[in-house]
Amino acid sequence: MEEFEPNIIGFLCNWCSYAGADLAGTSRIQYPPNVKIIKVMCSGRINPMYVVNALQQGADGVLIGGCHPGDCHYSRGNYLARRRIAVMKRLLEYIGIEPERVRMTWVSAAEGRKFAEVVEEVTEDIKKIGPMKKIRRENVW
């Protein structure tokens, strides 16, 4: 049987995490190709419904990347995102969606190595718990 390859959606902020992912690429650091990156201008831009919608539309996990606290390009976006995701994560856990599926991380533009490590960790975790079937949208046309 083929090994399960998860789909992970990565919402990365334009200024830190995306640049971090870019650095990982230019530095030729190997990391799993499972993460599909969507660039957003700031982690505070991420509507928590993005997470639910991603899980509905075929993602097995969601990774959210922002600047380190205090480093946000818009000075407070990552702090706001931290609150929002903290509440959303706990709500999803209460409803019965594994908490490993929604992950948040701080990656700066200089941390290409850290980004690769985070992606590796998330991919491994999601491989263990298997595909997301609970709230997958059925009638895709």
């Binding site: 928590p48 419904m49 639910v52 919608n53 509905q56 709500l91 999803l92 949208r137 009638n139």
Partner: peptide, 25 residues
């Protein structure tokens, strides 16, 4: 369209998560 019109488990769950979350705090 955040939630589709069809009434099924996936959309119902999304609606209920959204409703509860919008009332957070």
């Amino acid at each position: 369209q955040w939630i589709r019109r069809s009434v099924n488990l996936s959309e119902n769950t999304a609606w209920n998560i959204m409703r509860a979350y919008h009332l957070a705090g």
